[in-house]
Simulated assay, not measured.
Amino acid sequence: MEKITVIVPCYNEEDAIDYFYEEINRVMTEMENIDFELLFINDGSKDCTLDKIKEYAKKNQHVKYISFSRNFGKESAIYAGLEKSTGNYVCMMDADLQDPPMLLPKMLKIIKEEGYDSVATRRVTRKGESPIRSLFARLFYRIMNRISDTELMDGARDYRLMTRQFVNTLLDMREYNRFSKGLFGWIGFDTKWIEFENMERVAGETKWSFWKLLLYSIEGIVAFSTIPLTIVSILGMFMLVIAFIFIIFIVVKTLVYGDPVSGWPSLVCIITLIGGIQIFCVGILGQYLSKAYLETKKRPIYIVKDTNIDEKNQNVCKI
Protein backbone atom coordinates (compact mmCIF):
# COMPACT_ATOMS: atom_id res chain seq x y z
CA MET A 1 0.00 0.00 0.00
CA GLU A 2 1.29 3.47 -0.89
CA LYS A 3 2.02 5.78 2.01
CA ILE A 4 1.80 9.55 2.51
CA THR A 5 3.67 11.34 5.28
CA VAL A 6 1.92 14.57 6.27
CA ILE A 7 4.34 16.99 7.97
CA VAL A 8 2.71 19.56 10.27
CA PRO A 9 5.02 22.18 11.86
CA CYS A 10 3.46 23.54 15.05
CA TYR A 11 4.34 26.51 17.22
CA ASN A 12 1.79 27.52 19.88
CA GLU A 13 -1.14 26.07 17.92
CA GLU A 14 -3.25 24.73 20.80
CA ASP A 15 -6.29 26.74 19.63
CA ALA A 16 -6.20 25.47 16.05
CA ILE A 17 -4.76 21.96 16.22
CA ASP A 18 -8.01 20.22 17.22
CA TYR A 19 -9.78 21.63 14.15
CA PHE A 20 -6.87 20.55 11.97
CA TYR A 21 -6.80 17.02 13.41
CA GLU A 22 -10.53 16.58 12.81
CA GLU A 23 -10.24 17.80 9.20
CA ILE A 24 -7.14 15.78 8.27
CA ASN A 25 -8.73 12.67 9.80
CA ARG A 26 -11.75 13.14 7.55
CA VAL A 27 -9.51 13.38 4.48
CA MET A 28 -7.45 10.36 5.56
CA THR A 29 -10.62 8.32 5.96
CA GLU A 30 -11.80 9.25 2.46
CA MET A 31 -8.44 8.14 0.99
CA GLU A 32 -8.97 4.59 2.21
CA ASN A 33 -6.48 2.93 -0.16
CA ILE A 34 -3.59 5.06 1.14
CA ASP A 35 -1.61 4.48 4.32
CA PHE A 36 -0.86 7.66 6.27
CA GLU A 37 1.80 8.91 8.66
CA LEU A 38 0.78 12.12 10.43
CA LEU A 39 4.03 13.71 11.61
CA PHE A 40 3.70 16.70 13.95
CA ILE A 41 6.81 18.84 14.57
CA ASN A 42 6.50 20.74 17.84
CA ASP A 43 8.81 23.71 17.36
CA GLY A 44 9.34 24.62 21.02
CA SER A 45 5.72 25.55 21.76
CA LYS A 46 5.07 27.22 25.11
CA ASP A 47 1.39 26.29 25.31
CA CYS A 48 -0.37 22.91 25.38
CA THR A 49 0.31 22.02 21.74
CA LEU A 50 2.61 19.10 22.61
CA ASP A 51 0.16 17.70 25.18
CA LYS A 52 -2.58 17.59 22.57
CA ILE A 53 -0.29 15.93 20.03
CA LYS A 54 0.60 13.23 22.57
CA GLU A 55 -3.12 12.61 23.14
CA TYR A 56 -3.58 12.08 19.41
CA ALA A 57 -0.62 9.68 19.37
CA LYS A 58 -2.18 7.57 22.14
CA LYS A 59 -5.43 7.20 20.20
CA ASN A 60 -4.01 6.92 16.68
CA GLN A 61 -1.01 4.77 15.78
CA HIS A 62 -0.47 6.80 12.61
CA VAL A 63 0.37 9.92 14.62
CA LYS A 64 4.06 10.57 15.16
CA TYR A 65 5.69 13.60 16.71
CA ILE A 66 9.04 15.28 17.18
CA SER A 67 9.46 17.93 19.86
CA PHE A 68 12.39 20.34 19.71
CA SER A 69 14.39 21.47 22.72
CA ARG A 70 13.52 25.08 21.85
CA ASN A 71 12.07 27.14 19.01
CA PHE A 72 14.34 26.59 15.98
CA GLY A 73 11.98 28.10 13.40
CA LYS A 74 9.70 26.73 10.73
CA GLU A 75 12.54 25.98 8.30
CA SER A 76 14.14 23.63 10.84
CA ALA A 77 10.76 22.02 11.51
CA ILE A 78 10.27 21.40 7.79
CA TYR A 79 13.70 19.82 7.47
CA ALA A 80 13.13 17.59 10.52
CA GLY A 81 9.84 16.40 9.03
CA LEU A 82 11.42 15.66 5.67
CA GLU A 83 14.31 13.81 7.33
CA LYS A 84 12.04 11.60 9.46
CA SER A 85 9.33 11.01 6.85
CA THR A 86 8.87 7.43 5.63
CA GLY A 87 6.16 7.71 2.96
CA ASN A 88 6.33 7.24 -0.80
CA TYR A 89 4.91 10.74 -0.93
CA VAL A 90 5.45 13.59 1.52
CA CYS A 91 3.08 16.48 2.13
CA MET A 92 3.59 19.65 4.15
CA MET A 93 0.78 21.77 5.54
CA ASP A 94 0.16 24.22 8.37
CA ALA A 95 -1.97 23.42 11.40
CA ASP A 96 -4.11 26.58 11.11
CA LEU A 97 -6.15 25.22 8.13
CA GLN A 98 -4.91 27.98 5.83
CA ASP A 99 -3.72 25.00 3.77
CA PRO A 100 -6.95 23.11 2.93
CA PRO A 101 -6.46 19.35 3.54
CA MET A 102 -9.34 18.71 1.13
CA LEU A 103 -6.93 19.38 -1.77
CA LEU A 104 -4.75 16.40 -0.90
CA PRO A 105 -6.66 13.75 -2.96
CA LYS A 106 -6.50 16.01 -6.02
CA MET A 107 -2.77 16.59 -5.52
CA LEU A 108 -2.05 12.85 -5.29
CA LYS A 109 -4.12 12.18 -8.41
CA ILE A 110 -2.10 14.74 -10.38
CA ILE A 111 1.23 13.21 -9.36
CA LYS A 112 0.13 9.64 -10.15
CA GLU A 113 -1.72 10.32 -13.40
CA GLU A 114 0.17 13.28 -14.88
CA GLY A 115 3.70 12.32 -13.84
CA TYR A 116 4.66 15.44 -11.86
CA ASP A 117 7.32 15.30 -9.14
CA SER A 118 5.47 17.70 -6.88
CA VAL A 119 2.18 19.55 -6.68
CA ALA A 120 2.35 22.95 -4.99
CA THR A 121 -0.28 25.47 -3.99
CA ARG A 122 -0.55 29.23 -4.29
CA ARG A 123 -3.05 31.80 -3.13
CA VAL A 124 -4.72 33.90 -5.82
CA THR A 125 -6.01 36.40 -3.24
CA ARG A 126 -4.71 37.81 0.03
CA LYS A 127 -8.04 38.30 1.71
CA GLY A 128 -7.62 38.99 5.43
CA GLU A 129 -4.11 40.44 5.14
CA SER A 130 -3.33 44.09 5.72
CA PRO A 131 -2.71 46.13 2.53
CA ILE A 132 0.83 47.01 3.65
CA ARG A 133 1.74 43.38 4.26
CA SER A 134 0.29 42.31 0.89
CA LEU A 135 2.16 45.12 -0.89
CA PHE A 136 5.52 44.14 0.58
CA ALA A 137 4.88 40.44 -0.12
CA ARG A 138 4.22 41.10 -3.80
CA LEU A 139 7.22 43.42 -3.96
CA PHE A 140 9.44 40.70 -2.48
CA TYR A 141 8.44 38.15 -5.12
CA ARG A 142 9.03 40.66 -7.91
CA ILE A 143 12.48 41.56 -6.60
CA MET A 144 13.47 37.91 -6.07
CA ASN A 145 12.43 36.89 -9.58
CA ARG A 146 14.51 39.72 -11.04
CA ILE A 147 17.72 39.22 -9.07
CA SER A 148 17.70 35.44 -8.70
CA ASP A 149 17.93 32.54 -11.15
CA THR A 150 15.45 30.64 -8.98
CA GLU A 151 11.84 31.39 -9.86
CA LEU A 152 9.47 32.04 -6.96
CA MET A 153 5.72 31.90 -7.50
CA ASP A 154 3.81 34.87 -6.11
CA GLY A 155 1.46 33.71 -3.35
CA ALA A 156 3.19 30.33 -3.01
CA ARG A 157 2.45 28.35 0.13
CA ASP A 158 4.65 25.72 1.77
CA TYR A 159 1.71 23.36 1.25
CA ARG A 160 2.78 20.80 -1.36
CA LEU A 161 2.88 17.07 -2.09
CA MET A 162 6.24 15.62 -3.19
CA THR A 163 7.58 12.32 -4.42
CA ARG A 164 10.29 10.48 -2.47
CA GLN A 165 12.89 11.43 -5.10
CA PHE A 166 12.01 15.10 -4.68
CA VAL A 167 12.31 14.83 -0.89
CA ASN A 168 15.63 12.96 -1.00
CA THR A 169 17.07 15.69 -3.21
CA LEU A 170 16.01 18.34 -0.69
CA LEU A 171 17.63 16.35 2.12
CA ASP A 172 20.95 16.30 0.24
CA MET A 173 21.18 20.06 0.87
CA ARG A 174 22.03 20.27 4.56
CA GLU A 175 22.67 24.00 4.66
CA TYR A 176 22.04 25.64 8.02
CA ASN A 177 20.48 28.82 6.61
CA ARG A 178 17.43 27.44 4.82
CA PHE A 179 14.85 29.12 2.60
CA SER A 180 12.53 26.34 1.48
CA LYS A 181 10.60 28.33 -1.12
CA GLY A 182 13.87 28.94 -2.93
CA LEU A 183 15.11 25.37 -2.48
CA PHE A 184 11.94 23.96 -4.02
CA GLY A 185 12.55 25.97 -7.16
CA TRP A 186 16.32 25.54 -7.23
CA ILE A 187 16.33 21.73 -7.39
CA GLY A 188 14.09 21.77 -10.44
CA PHE A 189 11.83 18.78 -11.19
CA ASP A 190 8.35 19.10 -12.66
CA THR A 191 5.91 20.98 -10.44
CA LYS A 192 2.25 21.73 -11.04
CA TRP A 193 0.61 24.65 -9.24
CA ILE A 194 -2.89 24.56 -7.80
CA GLU A 195 -4.59 27.88 -7.11
CA PHE A 196 -7.06 28.50 -4.30
CA GLU A 197 -8.69 31.40 -2.51
CA ASN A 198 -6.91 32.60 0.61
CA MET A 199 -8.13 30.88 3.77
CA GLU A 200 -8.03 32.71 7.09
CA ARG A 201 -6.79 31.00 10.24
CA VAL A 202 -9.37 28.79 11.88
CA ALA A 203 -8.22 29.88 15.36
CA GLY A 204 -5.33 31.55 17.15
CA GLU A 205 -3.04 34.27 15.83
CA THR A 206 -0.32 34.24 13.21
CA LYS A 207 3.25 33.85 14.48
CA TRP A 208 4.63 35.76 11.50
CA SER A 209 4.89 39.43 12.39
CA PHE A 210 5.86 42.02 9.78
CA TRP A 211 9.37 42.17 11.25
CA LYS A 212 9.82 38.38 11.09
CA LEU A 213 8.63 38.32 7.49
CA LEU A 214 11.08 41.12 6.64
CA LEU A 215 13.99 39.17 8.15
CA TYR A 216 12.81 36.02 6.34
CA SER A 217 12.77 37.89 3.02
CA ILE A 218 16.32 39.11 3.61
CA GLU A 219 17.28 35.48 4.32
CA GLY A 220 15.85 34.49 0.94
CA ILE A 221 17.62 37.26 -0.96
CA VAL A 222 20.99 36.47 0.62
CA ALA A 223 20.54 32.72 0.11
CA PHE A 224 19.63 32.82 -3.58
CA SER A 225 21.23 35.92 -5.07
CA THR A 226 24.59 37.68 -5.12
CA ILE A 227 23.14 40.72 -6.92
CA PRO A 228 23.30 42.86 -3.72
CA LEU A 229 27.09 42.38 -3.74
CA THR A 230 27.19 43.48 -7.39
CA ILE A 231 25.11 46.54 -6.53
CA VAL A 232 27.53 47.41 -3.74
CA SER A 233 30.47 47.21 -6.16
CA ILE A 234 28.73 49.39 -8.76
CA LEU A 235 27.71 51.88 -6.07
CA GLY A 236 31.29 52.06 -4.85
CA MET A 237 32.58 52.77 -8.37
CA PHE A 238 29.89 55.41 -8.87
CA MET A 239 30.82 57.20 -5.64
CA LEU A 240 34.49 57.06 -6.67
CA VAL A 241 33.71 58.80 -9.96
CA ILE A 242 31.63 61.44 -8.15
CA ALA A 243 34.51 62.04 -5.74
CA PHE A 244 36.99 62.62 -8.60
CA ILE A 245 34.57 65.06 -10.23
CA PHE A 246 34.29 67.00 -6.96
CA ILE A 247 38.08 67.06 -6.58
CA ILE A 248 38.49 68.53 -10.06
CA PHE A 249 35.72 71.03 -9.37
CA ILE A 250 37.34 72.18 -6.11
CA VAL A 251 40.78 72.50 -7.69
CA VAL A 252 39.45 74.60 -10.59
CA LYS A 253 37.34 76.76 -8.27
CA THR A 254 40.32 77.38 -5.97
CA LEU A 255 42.59 78.40 -8.88
CA VAL A 256 40.00 80.74 -10.39
CA TYR A 257 38.20 82.24 -7.40
CA GLY A 258 40.57 81.60 -4.54
CA ASP A 259 39.64 79.54 -1.51
CA PRO A 260 36.94 81.28 0.54
CA VAL A 261 35.73 79.42 3.64
CA SER A 262 32.14 78.57 2.72
CA GLY A 263 29.82 75.69 2.02
CA TRP A 264 30.43 73.71 5.21
CA PRO A 265 26.71 72.74 5.61
CA SER A 266 26.71 71.10 2.17
CA LEU A 267 30.03 69.44 3.02
CA VAL A 268 28.52 67.93 6.18
CA CYS A 269 25.56 66.62 4.17
CA ILE A 270 27.84 65.02 1.60
CA ILE A 271 29.99 63.38 4.27
CA THR A 272 26.87 62.07 6.04
CA LEU A 273 25.49 60.72 2.75
CA ILE A 274 28.72 58.95 1.84
CA GLY A 275 29.08 57.60 5.39
CA GLY A 276 25.53 56.24 5.28
CA ILE A 277 26.16 54.53 1.93
CA GLN A 278 29.35 52.98 3.29
CA ILE A 279 27.60 51.62 6.38
CA PHE A 280 24.78 50.26 4.20
CA CYS A 281 27.31 48.49 1.96
CA VAL A 282 29.16 47.07 4.96
CA GLY A 283 25.82 45.81 6.27
CA ILE A 284 25.15 43.91 3.02
CA LEU A 285 28.63 42.40 3.13
CA GLY A 286 28.01 41.51 6.78
CA GLN A 287 24.85 39.59 5.88
CA TYR A 288 26.73 37.32 3.49
CA LEU A 289 29.66 36.97 5.90
CA SER A 290 27.36 36.05 8.80
CA LYS A 291 25.67 33.31 6.75
CA ALA A 292 29.04 31.85 5.79
CA TYR A 293 30.12 32.06 9.44
CA LEU A 294 27.07 30.12 10.63
CA GLU A 295 27.57 27.47 7.93
CA THR A 296 31.17 26.86 9.02
CA LYS A 297 30.07 26.13 12.59
CA LYS A 298 28.33 22.93 11.42
CA ARG A 299 25.75 23.17 14.18
CA PRO A 300 22.72 20.85 13.98
CA ILE A 301 19.69 22.26 12.21
CA TYR A 302 17.50 21.16 15.12
CA ILE A 303 17.72 19.33 18.46
CA VAL A 304 15.13 16.72 19.45
CA LYS A 305 13.96 16.69 23.06
CA ASP A 306 11.10 14.20 22.78
CA THR A 307 9.70 11.89 20.08
CA ASN A 308 7.70 8.68 19.64
CA ILE A 309 9.53 7.68 16.47
CA ASP A 310 11.37 4.38 16.74
CA GLU A 311 14.56 4.97 14.77
CA LYS A 312 15.50 1.27 14.69
CA ASN A 313 12.20 0.19 13.13
CA GLN A 314 11.78 3.18 10.85
CA ASN A 315 11.45 1.93 7.28
CA VAL A 316 11.73 4.70 4.71
CA CYS A 317 9.99 3.98 1.42
CA LYS A 318 12.40 3.88 -1.51
CA ILE A 319 12.13 5.79 -4.76
Rank of each mutant, 00 (worst) to 15 (best):
T121S: 04
E23C: 01
C48N: 09
T296L: 06
I301E: 05
I53F: 00
L97C: 13
I284M: 09
Y21F: 03
F36T: 02
Y288F: 06
K106A: 13
I242G: 00
L104N: 11
G263P: 00
Y11H: 14
W264T: 13
V256D: 05
E30S: 04
I227Y: 13
V261I: 06
K74T: 06
G73W: 13
E175R: 09
T169I: 08
E200Y: 04
V251W: 12
V304P: 05
M144S: 14
L229Q: 11
A95R: 03
T206Y: 00
F166S: 14
K46N: 15
L285K: 08
E311Q: 15
I277C: 11
Y216E: 04
L170G: 00
E32P: 07
K64Q: 15
R157N: 02
I309S: 01
K74S: 04
K112F: 03
N198Y: 12
P100N: 09
I24R: 06
E22A: 12
D47E: 13
D43M: 09
N313W: 10
R146C: 14
L214E: 04
P100G: 08
V63A: 04
I279P: 10
K127A: 14
I279N: 09
W193G: 02
F249N: 10
F224Y: 08
G73R: 04
Q61H: 14
R299H: 04
I270M: 15
E55I: 01
E113H: 08
K127W: 13
G155T: 05
V90L: 03
Y116C: 07
I53G: 00
V63D: 01
L294E: 02
G185K: 01
M31K: 03
K318G: 08
K312W: 03
T296P: 08
L289K: 07
F20R: 00
I301F: 07
L289Q: 09
L82C: 10
S134K: 09
G286P: 14
V222A: 12
G155I: 10
K106L: 09
I274F: 15
K106P: 08
C317F: 14
A77H: 01
K74E: 05
V282P: 10
I41Y: 06
I231Q: 10
F224Q: 06
Y65G: 03
I248F: 15
W186C: 05
T307D: 09
W264V: 05
P9Y: 04
K54L: 02
V252H: 10
S85E: 01
N177E: 15
P300T: 01
K58F: 12
